[in-house]
Nucleic acid binder design. Structure first.
Lengths: 326, 326
DNA sequence: CACCGCTCATGACATAAGTCAAATCGTTGC
DNA sequence: GCAACGATTTGACTTATGTCATGAGCGGTG
């Protein structure tokens, strides 16, 4: 796209205001425009990522509970959303925190993977604007067109847009009707190539799904409640990037998984920074499975969830999860 | 230091205001304090680096002249400070720009080297506050106690303080009275060790000095004007980290350099990102020398200086400077 | 060329944020 | 125990910023 003149002015205004600390009227005078325009340009500059305002998330890691959680489970860093009376609603707080943490974890030039789900979309929705050219956002799982919900490609696209990053979408369905077709599609060069780049990601963002009747996969029609029950009997406990995992966080060799086009769980585990965000208290068992499976190096949870994980982890005498497979 | 309660409140206020976008009165209500206090906390949060506001420096690289300068000389990126009528005073603008660029170039966990001089101190003076724990700022050259000027350790310390980074000072004089003593001191384990870590820096910040009577080295008393003249006759053209370089940017084997305790020029050249900032138009020849010597991968200069460099470079049919020696 | 639709700029007003002197609180030293 | 000090808080005030309706400019189009 051509360099618009207004972009130039916006830049200048932002520079004078934020970097030199001039007042809006001084900026206006300097640029020969009205102060009202300056105000508008400044807003646009913030929304474009030319100006970046970030807050340290230290408040949420600087916590004894967070230390305990890290020590017990072996995750590198844990962020804990308090559930006090005076605090904000954790459901509203967590996506904001997760978005900040996500930004903190990205480095220039990184390739980051984004999975899918309600949580991830909420994070995308509050993602601050940034100027991260050189960063690539890749979609971790196939698409699922659920009219009332958020599609995987929407999550990827929205995040990439806000970060001014390059978004790479994944043009394949998440689940196919036959295993054979899934297998063939996975073999297609375009798909194969894209799947193979996932292990090169420096950072991945996902949540973990449950297997109840109201789980995301069921609500999106990827599986019927009946099928999900059956998978549960076959050992499925949670969902990572559209795929079912068992209590130890291992891939379940079930009909659904075989028909599923998504990032190989091994590739995900190989990613250096695996950021797992869990909002609902009901996802305790899936979270335990994900942790055991090594799907989290960076964890965002509520206070109560942190306590439950620590208790269970200690009660079961579990060791610390392994570091990145890489 | 113990975690102060006010820090906690400051964090919370900053979080609610900047990350959730609440208004100050809403924050005040939520935290049960007055709005005036919130305003105070927010200022402190900005000054502490808990909140980080940065502006893209793209405005200064997004320029045909910058492209030409990069193409001609081979520096990776050039930032150009305009000298138009309507622009700000370049002398005031450059340190601000340099500070922003410096921050953009730092990555988490980096070790950065900082040299010394009027320019560097001015940059330190306008360096934004940031929360870069994990970053280490090391002093590139020995100390020189000039009462009316800025000491090398002050530059390092101030920058480290603003970034919330660890500052490593260099407790040796820049110049000694005898070569023998300098040699012995360089051999001291403490000094030797510190000098050897310089090549591990990911980023270095310095300017280039001139050899006129009003040059920094002379004004600080490291050399008399007479001695400086003599060095000029021996081929010295400019100063990098307290050491004289010749027209090709090579170390001059002269009395001053032999008595000098500073980063080995080879170590500096080995640093991946060498950020050179030149303010004064009078430093053209030193700048040329520094460029030829490979002391800049990232360059901040004025429009007129950029033009002169391009012209001379082309006229002399010089090639592009080599990339980092590493 | 008149009309439409769009973006951008502006003045005037409403609202939010910054500031400061005075009050309060907590600590230290005598 | 209390005086003195520094740090923190706040109400009242000033100043700066955000917003919005309105109008100007401009390119495409019938």
């Amino acid at each position: 796209m051509p360099i618009r003149n207004t972009d130039q002015i916006m830049h200048k205004a932002a520079w004078l205001y934020y970097s030199h600390g001039l007042r809006q009227d001084e900026v206006a005078q300097k640029l020969g425009i009205s102060r009202a325009s300056v105000a508008t340009y400044l807003r646009r500059a913030r929304e474009t990522g030319i100006v970046n305002i970030s807050t340290s998330t230290e408040l949420f890691t600087d916590d004894v509970l967070a230390r305990e959680l890290e020590d017990a489970t072996g995750v590198t860093t844990a962020w804990i959303v308090p559930e006090d009376r005076q605090a904000m609603d954790p459901t509203a707080e967590m996506p904001v925190l997760a978005a900040s943490v996500f930004l903190e974890l990205i480095n220039k030039g990184d390739r980051v993977g984004v999975a899918w789900g309600r949580t991830v979309y909420h994070i995308a929705d509050v993602m601050p604007f940034a100027d991260l050219r050189g960063v690539t956002v890749v979609q971790l799982c196939g698409n699922l067109g659920a009219p009332y919900s958020y599609r995987p490609d929407q999550c990827t696209t929205e995040i990439a847009r806000r970060l001014n990053a390059e978004g790479i979408n994944f043009y394949a369905p998440l689940v196919l009707s036959s295993e054979r077709l899934a297998e063939e599609l996975r073999g297609e060069p375009v798909i194969r190539e894209q799947l193979s780049t996932i292990a090169d990601c420096h950072l991945a963002l996902y949540s973990v799904g449950g297997i109840e009747d109201d789980s995301h996969l069921v609500k999106c029609g990827a599986l019927s409640a009946d099928e999900m029950h059956r998978m549960g009997e076959e050992g499925a406990v949670g969902v990572i990037a559209g795929q079912l995992i068992d209590g130890d966080g291992q891939w379940v060799n079930c009909a659904h998984n075989r028909r599923c086009i998504s990032a190989d769980l091994g590739s995900i585990r190989a990613i250096e920074k695996r950021m797992l965000v869990v909002q609902e208290d009901s996802k305790f068992e899936p979270l335990m499975a994900a942790l055991k499976g090594g799907f989290a190096s960076h964890l965002v949870v509520t206070t109560s969830m942190a306590r439950r994980v620590i208790d269970r982890w200690r009660r079961d005498g579990l060791g610390r999860v392994q570091a990145a497979t890489a």
